[in-house]
Amino acid sequence: MAANVQAPAVGFPPVLSDAVRDAAIEFFGSYCGLQPCERDDKPVESGGPGIMGVISFFGDPVWSVSLVMPQQTAVMAAKAFAGFEISFDSADMGDIVGEMANVMAGDIVARLDARGITAQMSLPTVARGNDVEVLSAANECATRLKFESPNGSFLFRLVKALDRLPNVRRAGA
């Protein structure tokens, strides 16, 4: 039996990234005072403290979205969204970033639902630290959406499980 489980070069489904993009512009523009603008041409900034809220979607397809914000953006967005100041190092910061990811995920699900794509969303997971990077397993395809605003930058990491591994050869095939 021979198996080659390397991921093929597959594009991320635009219907999913479009839903995330639209939900991000709506949410951060309307409720976080950031007026975001997508910047695909700029490299992703790395380093320094940041926070990340992750939500998975179960259905067809199975995928996840990670909202990644540097400290400055997180503090500004949290204050605008919650209506009161939240310290970056507090437990409440994890709480509010989870809620922000959750609210956006609800909007994403509704946008996909309107296009006939059903999904159930998970509870959010939040990670805070320095130089946090999201790594993908070999059987996933992924993309990034980067946004800038006068009050800070943020990005989304979108990861989708492949439906199948096309290079796997079954025994006897």
């Binding site: 809620e99 609210v103 956006m104 995920a105 609800g106 699900v109 509704a110 639902d113 969303m121």
Partner: peptide
Amino acid sequence: VTSERAVG
């Protein structure tokens, strides 16, 4: 009071 907003 929820973030779930799909019609279903």
